[in-house]
Design a protein around this nucleic acid. Structure first.
Lengths: 206, 206
DNA sequence: CTCGCCGTGGATGTATGCAATCTTGGCGAG
DNA sequence: CTCGCCAAGATTGCATACATCCACGGCGAG
C-alpha cells in the first residue's frame, strides 16, 4: 500500500478538499486510474482509505461518491467538535513545544494577512492540527480526524460574514496568547467561542 | 467490496474482539487468504477497513498487526467516551422506539443472568450500540466506533471486581428506567457514573 | 570474536484478466 | 401515453501473475 496508493489517496484528498471534485460526484475506478496513471488496485486502496476518513462513500457494486453532508450532519459535527476540541486544546497547552508555539503564532498572523479565503482553509487546518497533535492522544486524534479536515471547513470559510471571519481570526491570536501564558483553561474557553462562532455562520444556533 | 471482503472483515473483527487472535499478532495476507478461503485482494480490503476502525495497524511493506493499546491510550479512550457517550444517551432517550426500549431491557436483564463474562462483552456492545444508533448522528457514531467495540471492553469485563461488575449491570437497568421515563438528564448521569466505574477498574482514577 | 556486507527467501505492492452485478435505453403490453 | 420487462454496455468484485521491497542468515574482513 505504498507509493502509488498513498499518492493516489493524497491527490484525491486534496482535490476533494479543494473542491475540484464537487460534492456528490461519482468516482469511477477506471477514470481515476487513467487520470492518475496507475492501475485500479491502488485506486481501490485509496478509495477505501478515503471512505474510512469520511471523505467518500462506497456503495457495494455501485462505486464511490464524494460525500455530501446535510445541514443536520453539519450541526452534529460542530456538536462533536465542541465536546472534543476544547478538551484537546486544554490538554495540548502544557505540552506545546516552543517550535509549535512559534508555528501557531506564524499561522495566526499569516491567516490575518492572507487575502484568499481558499488559502485560509489549509492554514486553519494546520493551526487546529497542531493542537490536536500536541494533545498527544491518538484516540482523540482519530475521533477528530473525520470531522475537522472535511469539506465542512472549506464551505464554512466561504460562508463567513466579514465580522464572523474577523472574530475567527482573532480567536486564533488569542489562543496563541493563552497558550504562551500556559493557561489551558483560557485557551479552552477561546476554542469554545471559536467553534460557537463558526457554528453560527454555518447552520445558525440551535 | 462485497461478499468476500465484507465477510472476511467481519470474521477477522470477531476473532480479534473475541481474543482468538491475540494483541500484537502478525496478520499475514497469504495465511489469512488461505484460512478464509478467499484471495488476497478481499483480505487487503478487510485489513484496510479494520485499520480504519483502529483494530489493526498497517505498516507499509511490513504487513498488518493487531493493535495493542497502552494503559495511557486506555485512559484516553475513557476520556473520549466520557465526553461523547453521555451526550449520545441524552440525545437518544427522546428518540428511542418502543422496540428499542424492550431490547434494552431484555439485554440488561440478560446480562444479569449471564454467568459467562465472555458473553457479557457482546451483550454490552449491543446495549451501548442501541443508544448510539438512536442518537441518530452519523458523525457521532463514527467517532465512537473506534473506542467502543475495541478489545478494551473485552479486557475491561475481565478486570471487573465483583462489586464493580454488579454496579455496571445495575447501571444498565437504571438507564433503561431513565429511558422509559423519558428523562435524558437522568440517563446521562447514569451513563457518566457507568463510565467512571468502568474506568476505575480499568486504569484507576486519574 | 565482532561487525558489516550481500545474497536468498518470503512477504507486500501493483497490474491485469475474468466473472458477477448494476445501469440504461428501447420495446411491448395495457 | 405510461409502466414494466429485457438485453446490451459498462462497472465493480475477485483471482492470479509479476515486480518490488524487507527480513534474516551466512560469509568474509578487520
Amino acid at each position: 500500500m505504498r507509493a502509488a496508493a498513498e499518492q493516489a489517496a493524497q491527490r484525491l484528498r486534496e482535490e476533494i478538499l479543494a473542491g475540484v471534485i464537487p460534492s456528490g460526484a461519482r468516482l469511477g475506478e477506471v477514470e481515476l486510474a487513467g487520470r492518475l496513471s496507475v492501475s485500479r488496485t491502488p485506486i481501490r486502496e485509496a478509495l477505501t482509505r478515503l471512505a474510512a476518513e469520511g471523505l467518500v462513500e462506497i456503495q457495494p457494486n455501485r462505486g464511490a461518491r464524494v460525500v455530501s453532508r446535510s445541514d443536520e450532519e453539519l450541526r452534529e459535527i460542530f456538536e462533536l467538535r465542541l465536546r472534543l476540541e476544547p478538551y484537546a486544546v486544554q490538554q495540548a497547552v502544557p505540552a506545546l513545544s516552543p517550535e509549535q508555539l512559534d508555528d501557531l503564532e506564524a499561522l495566526a498572523t499569516e491567516m490575518i494577512e492572507a487575502g484568499d479565503r481558499d488559502a485560509l482553509v489549509e492554514l486553519n487546518r494546520r493551526f487546529h492540527s497542531i493542537f490536536i497533535e500536541a494533545a498527544g492522544s491518538r484516540p482523540l486524534a482519530d475521533a477528530l480526524r473525520g470531522v475537522t479536515h472535511a469539506p465542512v471547513v472549506h464551505q464554512n470559510f466561504h460562508n463567513y460574514t466579514p465580522e464572523g471571519l474577523q472574530r475567527s481570526l482573532h480567536h486564533h491570536v488569542e489562543m496563541v496568547a493563552a497558550a504562551r501564558a500556559g493557561d489551558g483553561d483560557w485557551a479552552e474557553a477561546v476554542m469554545r467561542a471559536h467553534l460557537y462562532n463558526a457554528r453560527a455562520t454555518m447552520v445558525g444556533a440551535r
